[in-house]
Design a protein around this nucleic acid. Structure first.
Lengths: 130, 130
DNA sequence: GCTAAGGCCCGTAGCCGCTACGGAGTCAAC
DNA sequence: GTTGACTCCGTAGCGGCTACGGGCCTTAGC
């Protein structure tokens, strides 16, 4: 299959496929006579793995590690567990951060009595506190 | 005061001050004889406003708008309200996204029986689903 | 006066993960 | 044969910084 079909099958942008190839996350594919990239089912699998990992927030370097582990069949999976656990901790930290932001924004919005910019609690809060 | 003092007073990196100046978020300051930047209390206020807005997740362009509104005393503050409200919605959307990621990661980790990479539920989940 | 340590100057390049652009070659259908 | 969709490639841009390198300035101690 050609690049756009692969991209569609895996659920990403065509340019993203080229990008992943450039940074060595996808192997260089076979080429047709005219120089078009040619992919098979294993490429779909690999790209899907990447897209799915991205959706869970893993970075591309972490994904490199996950792919390596997935390719090696017989290792104990402690390393994969560790990777995922560390990543989960980061996701949760980020979520808590956003939670705090949202709470503060809601507080500012609730307090706003919709007067002028001179008395606006939103602008005052940004100007005065911290 | 000089640039590093301003940065310390507002709680950001010195290079960030230069960056904000470069993109027009901070005005070009006075200079000492030797060409050193020279700041006053109003600069601290303005930079604090920016740092605080950044901490709440506003983008630099949004902050430009907030600063403009804060400077104009007599406008109705509906625009500031709107900006904050839109931003809050984005923060909450992002938070929900991270929530979903975290839940899925926890599910994968809980299922893992710590065997080999061949049977690891984490790697299987990434490979097979989606 | 001399030296050494620290600050500050500037422009530029790098980070992540894409996404877009432009100009050219290719392929299939009508 | 011509249209239109697809693909090729390299490079530049996004946001929001952060770091680097080479050089000037200031300050303190001797």
């Amino acid at each position: 299959m050609r690049i756009s079909e692969l991209a569609r099958a895996a659920g990403c942008h065509l340019e993203t496929v080229r990008y992943y190839e450039r940074i060595g996350l996808l192997p260089r594919p076979l080429r047709s006579g005219a120089g078009y990239r040619s992919y098979g089912p294993r490429d779909v699998e690999r790209l899907r793995f990447i897209v799915r990992s991205r959706a869970l927030g893993f970075g591309l370097d972490e994904i490199r590690g996950l792919l390596r582990l997935a390719a090696a069949g017989d290792l104990p999976c402690g390393e994969a567990d560790e990777l995922a656990r560390t990543h989960l901790a980061q996701v949760e930290a980020k979520r808590r951060e956003l939670d705090a932001m949202a709470a503060e924004l809601r507080g500012m919005l609730d307090a706003c009595r919709h007067g002028t910019t001179a008395t606006c609690t939103i602008l005052r809060a940004l100007a005065e506190r911290g």
